[in-house]
Design a protein around this nucleic acid. Structure first.
Length: 610
DNA sequence: TTAGGGTTAG
């Protein structure tokens, strides 16, 4: 394990530092070393040669036999080290096999450091090895290094294969860099010596799905059909999964039927995606039907499938049922993984059952290396939502000790947590620490802090932050303007809020229901209830439907401004639309009833609204 | 021996 960690730490940087000098980390005289080794080997006696050759072949054969048994990085590296000690070295493809195994285990840095060891031993890479390296750098988000390897590929006199291009396209898509991915694809077509294959299209389908563009993904699938490319299970699964995530279960089931009618058998991933789609829509009967159908086809749910069930049940508030699924897994000798437990923990957090959530977290800790950044984020978020910021902060600090990265998502959670309890200085401290540690705040960090400053009546600091956002050319959307309009309203600057609201269309932005709600609230706070009512009419005319929050805000505004009769009209409207009074509106209505300020004829209506 | 598919957090 220690050996593996040392390799991983030395990994990518080793390649990059040398490649930045224009010389990737291959041994400078690798061919010479290889030839010297070769001749040194042949200079031995013939008898010794035959004996050694037999022994070496046996050793390599034994190592090759071990390959399928390798399920972890330690074993892979063990085999790799034994191979490196053999003289002469085993053929390159044996090393490539090990690199593949490690890459499949997602230990990309380890692949790179192992490659560097091969280079030091004098091995010259071929296209396969270089493609594996490019793939690893892509997964490590080091596209620059990927292109350095591509340069090396040319230098060695190779041509990029279709796999090289597919790997680079996938690398860009992994990072949402669709334009660059499309650029490589177009170059590939233009150059003509490397034609796209089914995997190229499969990769592009995945890219479109990642962007939520299911329609375009299906169109590409149809183009594949026109060009007689084989459409396999992976392409179908990619689109079915994307449709299910977007709760388009009917479309997913249609594609599923098409797939089956073409003789492509579904697998556990297909069914898992469909079950998730059904669960997300609360169609539990459909989920059960799919579960029975898959088992009737001898396709059995695995840890992923059960985890999807646990997650969706928890998000539907059915934590007891989710517990049952975890118990069922254990009964079936299926070990729940970090995602299963984290999902269950999230379920408890959503219910505010922090003690139970903490117990799951402790259970995970007791199982060794089961806790990851996600687990921390879920628990920290749970504590923040319960306004238990000190518990959240302790966990946040604990992450560094555990060697876990406090990424933007976690920092944003903790900044928000501090803001929600009014500890703006602590929130700002995390915000500044992010900048000094190189974990640059993103648009969500800014949004969270801006909201915190506004709600804690620190308007000048909020405006300063907003200007910083503009200066950094962050994508300032309608949510951010809603926060700012709300801040101005809370500070009593209704005119400024109204000016900002009226200027939205000139910025190409449309107010949404939240923007209308905060502006209506501001107008009510300023006693401008007639204008608030006009805005209610305007929003409906512009196709933005008011919600229960809109009605509650305006009704409270009218009551607070002693316009009981208009409040009653809007209570009627609210009830007719199926909305009801929230706790604070209810309190105001009850006060009115106590003061006999309500027409008794309206009592049945009020009862309905409560 | 290389490239495309499923689960958790703001």
């Amino acid at each position: 394990m220690l050996k593996m960690m040392m390799r991983t730490n030395a990994a990518a940087s080793s390649y990059c530092s040398s490649s930045s000098r224009g010389m990737p980390c291959l041994h400078p005289n690798s061919t010479v070393v290889f030839v010297n080794n070769y001749f040194a080997f042949f200079s031995r006696s013939q008898a010794s040669k035959a004996k050694n050759s037999r022994r070496r072949r046996t050793q390599i054969d034994q190592l090759a036999k071990d390959f399928p048994k390798i399920t972890n990085v330690e074993d892979a590296l063990n085999v790799f080290d034994r191979m490196l000690q053999l003289r002469p070295l085993p053929p390159l493809f044996r090393f490539t096999q090990v690199l593949c195994l490690v890459a499949r285990l997602k230990q990309y840095s380890t692949v790179i450091s192992s490659y560097n060891q091969m280079a030091v031993s004098g091995m010259v890479p071929d296209v396969y090895v270089l493609n594996i390296l490019i793939n690893c750098f892509c997964h490590l988000n080091q596209m620059g290094s990927s292109f350095s390897v591509l340069g090396k590929l040319f230098k060695l006199g190779f041509e990029p294969s279709v796999s090289t291009v597919n790997t680079l396209i996938n690398g860009f898509l992994l990072k949402n860099r669709v334009v660059e991915a499309a650029g490589i694809f177009n170059k590939m077509i233009k150059a003509g010596n490397c034609q796209p294959n089914a995997i190229t299209f499969g990769t592009l389908v995945k890219g479109l799905c990642m962007k939520g563009n299911n329609g375009a993904a299906i169109q590409l699938l149809r183009k594949m059909e026109e060009r007689a490319f084989k459409i396999d299970l992976i392409v179908y699964n990619t689109i079915i999964n994307s449709l299910c995530k977007d709760t388009l279960l009917v479309d997913a089931l249609n594609l599923f039927s098409e797939m089956i009618s073409r003789g492509i058998a579904a697998d556990v991933r297909t069914y898992t995606a469909l079950i998730q789609g059904a669960c997300k829509l609360g169609k539990w009967k459909e989920a059960t039907r799919l579960l029975k159908e898959m088992e009737s086809k001898n396709i059995f749910p695995n840890v992923h499938s059960f985890t999807v069930l646990v997650d969706t049940l928890c998000k539907e508030g059915m934590v007891v049922e989710a517990e049952g699924v975890v118990e069922m897994m254990i009964q079936r000798d299926m070990e729940p993984n970090v995602v299963t437990y984290s999902s269950l923990m999230n379920g408890y957090c959503l219910q505010g059952e922090m003690d139970k959530a903490k117990k799951v977290f402790e259970l995970m800790l007791s199982k060794g290396s089961m806790v990851n950044g996600f687990s921390y984020a879920i628990l920290i978020n749970g504590y923040c939502n319960q306004k238990k910021i000190d518990e959240a902060r302790m966990l946040f600090l604990d992450m560094s000790r555990m060697g876990l990265i406090q990424d933007n998502i976690i920092c944003n959670i903790i900044v928000d947590g501090f803001c929600k309890v009014g500890r703006i200085q602590d929130a700002q401290k995390v915000f500044f620490e992010m900048q000094t540690s190189g974990q640059l705040p993103d648009v969500i960090t800014y949004t969270v802090l801006l909201d915190g400053l506004c709600k804690n009546r620190q308007l000048s600091k909020a405006m300063q932050l907003f200007r910083e956002m503009e200066g950094k050319k962050l994508d300032i959307d309608i949510k951010i303007y809603s926060i700012l309009i709300n801040g101005l309203c809370i500070a009593g600057k209704i005119k400024s809020a109204r000016d900002l609201f009226c200027g939205l269309s000139s910025k190409g932005l449309q107010p949404d229901v939240v923007t209308y709600n905060v502006m209506i609230n501001g107008l009510c706070l300023g006693g401008l209830t007639s204008e608030a009512e006009e805005l209610l009419i305007e929003m409906e005319e512009k196709g933005c439907s008011p919600n229960d929050r809109t009605y509650n805000t305006i009704i409270r505004g009218l009551i607070n401004n002693n316009d009981t009769s208009r409040a009653m009209v809007l209570i009627r409207q609210m009830v007719e639309k199926g909305f009801s009074a929230d706790a604070s509106t209810m309190e105001l209505i009850v006060n009115l009833l106590c003061k006999d300020e309500v027409d008794p004829a309206l009592l049945p209506l009020i009862r309905k609204s409560l």
